[in-house]
Design a protein around this nucleic acid. Structure first.
Lengths: 254, 254
DNA sequence: ACCTGAACACCGTTCAAGT
DNA sequence: ACCTGAACACCGTTCAAGT
């Protein structure tokens, strides 16, 4: 939770008041009307200036979108994620849940995030910390880079698919409702032509999707974890050491 | 490879000639100018009709996009993917590579795919077969549904992130060029503020991204594989047959 | 069924001008 | 530096009308 949603928690270069006003307007427009709604003219109107006044602060519309996306990424809570005294898996899960929570609060932004270069300061800060976590987990540079890329792919892909389809309206209905909607959409599509898909829709509907999200995350971390097995782990002091790449890799099944 | 790119390989209900003309026009516009370029007016102009003639075939622009996306999904080659005599991992990898190839051929469509409900006949056909593969691998219904969702998330998330950012132009540069571009974009961003991220950009640049894609896929399948260990498998006949597929599961690292 | 002209309420962006 | 009016070339969509 943040104090005010318009001031997420920044550490980067100071952004002009006016600039933040424009981004606030853009975000509220996206929240109300989806990704397309953040038009230059709409933003200007909401702030009370002429459309072309926006170009004093941003080169073009895409620059507005990029700034909006990066500012939103600044809203994820690093408390657990950045705490190097915590076990690395807990840190990763914390990031995953925090990022998902933040994006689910603004579903209209998700398509913008996934189409963005993710090279803003906030995105780089997240990436940096994620690499740190995997280094602390004992992965070498290459393994950490790959694991990090894999994780980002998973987190953003999940949220994007979650949000896809029923994206039109405003806030985003509660999770059970979303699951039910998704279920009926798939189940409706001829159970005899697609028997497995229909059945899968039914079974998936039985699981709230946050649980599915964590399940996938854990399967993925199992594949990346250098410790692998159930082994009580023992050592695993952060940063410094082991790194030998992940010895025995075999995972446990579902 | 398909004979003509405009007739991917359909089995669904017959689509009118005119309808396919419109989708051909939409696809070529997207290929040339990105996702936004498939405008109703642009499509109509390319086909040589008045803008509102499009509404004879599609309810609105989003229906055009959905049809375009689903038709494109029909272009993935099922030869290995659907061959139940093949080991299941090979079938999954075949799908993953085929889907990626198909989407990389039309990068502008990727954002449209990821924002789509994926409930068209071609999407459901893919989903259906994917569930079949996991059933053949010995997963029960719930596990197969989850694994399938996880896989779709990974495939689409990967391609989306791959394409994100440098999306503006036409075809999509060759892979080494893309990797290099991505590298310099990240490395440029202050190596002292983001040391790990910069270093990771350098290391990731050393790997072509198809390899990274397969690496992630295998880590993920490791997490899902019911066989897990080295155990030679034995029983576990699913649906039809053996299904024990591929036997030893332990991956090679990096 | 299929297409059209005309109109409506929108877009992003640029340019010359003002303070 | 910051904002404006006016204009340009676009959008999606609807309506009434034609064949």
């Amino acid at each position: 939770m943040e104090a005010t949603s318009s001031t997420p928690k920044r550490r980067g270069p100071p952004r002009s008041l006016r600039e933040d006003d424009l981004l606030d307007a853009a975000l509220s427009l996206v929240d109300e009307g989806g990704p397309e709604a953040a038009s230059v003219r709409g933003i200007a109107a909401r702030v009370g200036v002429a459309p072309n006044a926006v170009y004093t602060y941003f080169r073009d519309r895409s620059a507005v979108i990029r700034a909006l996306v990066d500012r939103l990424l600044g809203g994820v809570d690093h408390d657990v994620f950045a705490d190097r005294s915590q076990p690395w898996r807990a840190r990763v899960e914390s990031l995953a849940l925090e990022l998902r929570r933040q994006l689910a609060t603004h579903p209209g932004v998700v398509p913008l995030v996934i189409a963005s270069p993710l090279d803003g300061p906030q995105a780089l800060t997240l990436h940096e910390r994620l690499l740190e976590v995997f280094a602390d987990a004992g992965l070498d540079d290459v393994a950490a880079a790959r694991a990090s890329y894999l994780l980002v792919t998973y987190m953003l892909g999940s949220v994007a698919l979650d949000v896809a389809g029923a994206l039109k309206p405003g806030p985003l209905p509660p999770e059970p409702a979303r699951v039910a909607a998704r279920h009926s959409a798939f189940a409706a599509a001829s159970a005899d032509r697609f028997p497995r898909a229909s059945a899968a829709a039914a079974t998936v509907a039985a699981y709230v999707s946050t649980e599915q999200y964590l399940w996938g995350l854990r399967r993925l971390l199992d594949g990346v974890d250098p410790e692998s097995e159930d082994a009580p782990s023992a050592g695993a002091e952060p940063n410094g050491r082991i790194a030998t790449g992940h010895g025995s890799t075999c995972p446990r099944s579902s």
